[in-house]
Design a protein around this nucleic acid. Sequence first.
RNA 1: UGGGGCGUAGCCAAGCGGUAAGGCAACGGGUUUUGAUCCCGUCAUUCCCUGGUUCGAAUCCAGGCGCCCCAG
Length: 388
Amino acid sequence: MSVVLDQADVLPVLAPLVAGKAPADTRVVVAMSGGVDSSATAAWLHALGYDVIGITLQLYDHGQAVGRKGACCAGQDIHDARDVAAGLGIPHYVLDYESRFRDQVMDDFADAYLRGETPIPCVRCNQTVKFRDLLATARELGADVLATGHYARREEGAAGPELRRAADDGRDQSYFLFTTTRDQLDLLRFPLGGLPDKAATRALAQRFGLRVADKPDSQDICFVPDGDYARVIEKLRPGAAEPGDIVDMEGNVLGRHKGIIHYTIGQRRGLGIGGRTGGEDDALYVIRLDADRRRVIVGPRAALGVGAITLREVNWLGDAPLGARPVPVMVKVRSTHRPVAVTLAATEDGGARLVFDQPEPGVSPGQAAVFYDGDRVLGGGWIAATGG
RNA sequence: UGGGGCGUAGCCAAGCGGUAAGGCAACGGGUUUUGAUCCCGUCAUUCCCUGGUUCGAAUCCAGGCGCCCCAG
């Protein structure tokens, strides 16, 4: 059961989780989802001699998600996490967070769509359930730090801990961590962030004999089966999908839609209206959603560009405070895509005003704008409105 | 029923006697720990119908049917 380490079998180097504290004296709570990443994290830290406690959050669908691939935090995944912990011989707890997950993440998810916004449940989950509630629980368990399997880096900087992109650029998850506060960052650790790639993680899992080593990556929204998120919303908010008109930018009715919750800004597929000539590309994209009138406003790709956005609940992680004077930063308005150049200025309500150097397509309220300076995450904010 | 025009996939649309372009939509897949975008693939044995001419017709001819415009 216990892992025997050959001398030749050297573990990847990991800086001490707590400076000046020996691993054996460092209590680490590892958030174990049941996937490869967090399992490898737990195994690695355990092998390095840390006092590891595994915690798995049960988030939704009690007993009903068993066997579903690519999920996390329910059913089979909880069993996987338990198995891994048992194999390592570390304490492991499963916490029932279903009601708070529903309140903080799923309800918000549904309501955002009803408002015509497009939410990011993964960020909400990190922001509330994981980095607030679970972190508090870790503290209660006497943990020095909370480690997760996120691909991001936390580095000790001159002005305190800094959040940075993962070493593996293609795997980086820092976008989903933008709400993480300095205080939370004090206690958070992301051991995988420094690994060169996912293969290294799987290799780690393999070498510790974890059964989850070949488990497929999770993707899509964890509580949405089959990618049909609208069905989940309708379950949460019966009657949410009210049909309405699809109109062009002049207000001419072009067709009908099956409910505003099925669409997001920048979306092309699923409109069901074809035809018309004249442009080199006649495809229509969702330009705007009007929740009150249940309208989907569509237009050509050229109409998709947004020049500026208003942010709310900005979490600023830069060393110097963000002021009212615009400063240039790089920003991502979606997890994929490269950062683009903008200027950013704080507003009085804790928000910010962001102006793109070049119009950015497919920007939707409810999504996040995350600020970068090279590898470093300077914070981010929720997109409240676009325009200007 | 005077004149003119048009009928090609769900929509738009090339083709003008040589064996059905393209775009949109749709569908399937890839990329992706949010939604999208994007990329790749599939999608008319058949051109309103019926005859005819021709080695060969969506393309020419005749007759139907349907639609549009102008003039009434």
